[in-house]
Design a protein around this nucleic acid. Structure first.
Lengths: 263, 263
DNA sequence: CAACGTCATTCGGTCTTCTGAACGGCCGAA
DNA sequence: TTCGGCCGTTCAGAAGACCGAATGACGTTG
């Protein structure tokens, strides 16, 4: 008889409580790099300590979380590493993209990413490093707000305005002084992107990084590829040049995927 | 009243059943690249379909598993990608190892790995690709039997014979014709490794790949680094040369870790 | 066309887990 | 030392998950 509480939290009664909590623990430890104590996690999740205790014991026994030497702070365990990479191996887009990304990285000499829209964020699925000493930081599995990335805008530009408004969290979070947070300006950018065929990020999530991105799948996918570089190596002329290369790579990858889908 | 069953399975009663099942699902979908139906998973886990159904619904709602277009086969979901990379970022060894691995890869020109012993297997935590066109396949998160890898033998050589016998599953699994499966021969190899300071894998997990590995942490860690190459590029003389480079890299990384631990 | 196999899904009684409060250990402050 | 705060841990009542059998939906085969 906690229907009031459940309704207030918006949880469906079809959820298995401890299953959901296991996943919440993993997500909590995943977004924070830091280690957390049982009490801290219980507070963050609004769950009784005693309930969480039993769950963490189960997870610890299976090495999905581990305790630091002092025995009081939990972190992600070794077993968790297996699943993430399994997602990548089982995914058609990621496994087909390898050679295309290699070629694009080779051609441009800059950092190349494959990303996927997941809710309001973009997840990096694959990357290729730049050849230059000055590199941007990124990592597979990392999440960035979609509205502040080239990858995100490339995918979002495929939807109409109403759909975009439904998918994002408003107001848009500001990451740098250049982040576009005004709704009208943002939607105008998406319209421009749709016409042009490629999206631009001009220092909107990392100061000094410019990025060009193109969506995959011919208008209905959640994936995009991008090429990023410091402003010092990416003036307007170079941006157009890179945009051509990214567009071609996106087309050839989309074609590969289409063949796979038909078969 | 299932104490008999529980005892027969060796499960502690302190485990939370659905929590353990969530983890089992993730591990099952993780080792198999393939997608599985609910019925297949229920059979593989010896769990009633109806119970698993509720759990999978919970996991699907949170994108930890996803259904293929037909709606009948489950695979790992996008959220699972987050945790694996978080483990790597939060780990001292992995985050410190980067520059050392870069340098070793640069110096040898061959594939370099950082691995950790987990039970009977070794998990790759980081890798650097070879510069050559002919490359070995490997991936962060992948697990290989410890007894058939240089990394595993480097770590295991730190333990005495009784400890090794306790830690491995006997009889040793054969992966290639060269895999050492005889207990005496295997223990003799470890003794040799201990004296020499570095371990060798001569086509024991992949035909045609030779590998040199050195343990980190000065005798009490679970980690090791290695350098692998096809036999065609790794004759006995080259092996000794590479072993020197790997040993030096391991020492400098161990020193870095010791400083961190003291502080 | 019908019968079958396989699949996900539902349902209510039973049994497990969840819960909140109380406990014991540990550290730093007074 | 003694106190206070915080940690993980335990326990018995209360709430919810688990299970097996039955159902419905699909695609395939005879």
């Amino acid at each position: 008889m906690e229907s009031v509480v459940e309704a207030a939290r918006g949880r469906k009664p079809e959820e298995v409580k401890s299953a959901a909590r296991v996943l919440e623990v993993l997500e909590l430890l995943g977004v924070q790099g830091a280690r957390l104590s049982l009490a801290e996690m219980a507070a963050a999740m609004s769950v009784p300590k005693s309930s969480l205790h039993a769950i963490l014991r189960t997870m610890e026994a299976r090495k999905w979380v581990d305790l630091d030497p002092s025995g009081t702070r939990y972190g992600i365990g070794l077993k968790a590493l297996l699943t993430g990479t399994a997602y990548l191996e089982g995914d058609d887009v990621t496994s087909l993209a390898g050679p295309v990304l290699d070629a694009l990285a080779e051609e441009t000499g800059e950092a190349v990413h494959l990303g996927r829209l997941d809710g309001t964020h973009v997840v990096y699925l694959a990357k290729r490093e730049s050849r230059h000493a000055l590199r941007m930081y990124s990592a597979v599995g990392r999440r960035l707000p979609a509205h502040a990335t080239g990858l995100g805008k490339a995918v979002l530009s495929q939807f109409d305005h109403a759909e975009v408004q439904r998918r994002l969290d408003w107001p848009l979070e500001r990451l740098t002084p250049s982040t576009v947070t005004d709704p009208d300006a943002f939607l105008a950018q998406l319209a421009e992107t749709r016409l042009r065929g490629w999206a631009v990020d001009d220092g909107e999530n990392s100061v000094d990084i410019r990025c060009v991105a193109v969506a995959l799948g011919g208008g209905q996918g959640m994936d995009a590829i991008s090429c990023s570089a410091p402003k010092s190596r990416m003036d307007d002329a170079r941006l157009e040049e890179v945009a051509q290369a990214v567009t071609e790579a996106a087309h050839s990858l989309s074609t590969l995927l289409k063949r796979l889908g038909q078969h």
